[in-house]
Design a protein around this nucleic acid. Structure first.
Length: 212
DNA sequence: CAAACGATTTTCT
DNA sequence: GAAAATCGTTTGG
């Protein structure tokens, strides 16, 4: 790799073209094995993505942008792909999404779980834990808390110093990818049945959900 | 302006 | 297994 200024890149930052593609389901699947890196409060933490969910915009009843809904909260989903959409759920949890596709197409991928890579100490501290267990980053709320992600990062680009997603050459075999239904979207009717959730088979950091 | 409700996690029984 | 925690967003009056 190479050093640029004082910043050492351990992996290639995903190019904007990765996010601008039309197939949000494919993007969700391809985000498995990529590394989410944050640099917050001077602390660098990172984790390898092991579970994602695709949200198909205006035609997807499970999406916040279903029917073309445009509100203050969902506005960022209409941005050009490659930025973060972080929203507060149940008043407690910050859920991190990747906005994809061209401007005005509100596609997004929810990052549901990841395996800790760097900055384990900081992640444990942020989560009030002392030992590394899957619960540290298994689940969208837990993952965000561990990496220091919060709603203030909404709209922030995914190729910057503070927040980015890297490709570190981790290869994922199709045979190791499980497709399933999304979690917590029963209200979406038939759209809740779509196989829009992807996770790595046998990985201990995949969230333990009832959905499947 | 009031009220209901989550793309969840943790804790208690 | 059930229920609480907790608050911004959205919707209805």
């Amino acid at each position: 790799m190479r050093a640029s200024g004082d910043l050492l890149y351990l992996g290639m930052i995903l190019p904007e073209s990765f996010y601008l593609r039309e197939d949000v389901v494919r993007i969700a699947r391809e985000l498995l094995g990529k590394v989410l890196v944050t640099h917050i409060d001077g602390i660098r933490t990172s984790a390898t993505i092991v579970e994602t969910e695709a949200y198909g915009g205006i035609t997807d009843k499970a999406s916040h942008a279903y029917g073309g809904r445009r509100t203050n909260r969902t506005e960022v989903m209409y941005s050009r792909g490659g930025v973060a959409y972080v929203f507060l759920c149940y008043g407690i949890h910050h859920l991190f999404n990747v906005v994809t596709n061209a401007a005005d197409v509100p596609h997004a991928v929810l990052i549901r779980a990841a395996e800790p890579a760097e900055g384990l100490e900081a992640m444990l501290q942020r989560r009030g834990k002392t030992t590394l267990k899957p619960a540290l980053t298994a689940g969208p709320g837990a993952l965000s808390a561990a990496l220091g992600i919060h709603t203030g990062l909404t709209g922030v680009g995914l190729s910057g110093n503070g927040l980015r997603i890297e490709d570190r050459g981790i290869e994922i075999n199709d045979a190791d990818i499980i497709a399933a239904t999304r979690v917590g979207v029963a209200y979406a009717g038939t759209d809740a049945l779509l196989p829009y959730r992807f996770y790595l088979k046998g990985n201990k950091f995949v969230s333990k959900s009832k959905g499947l």
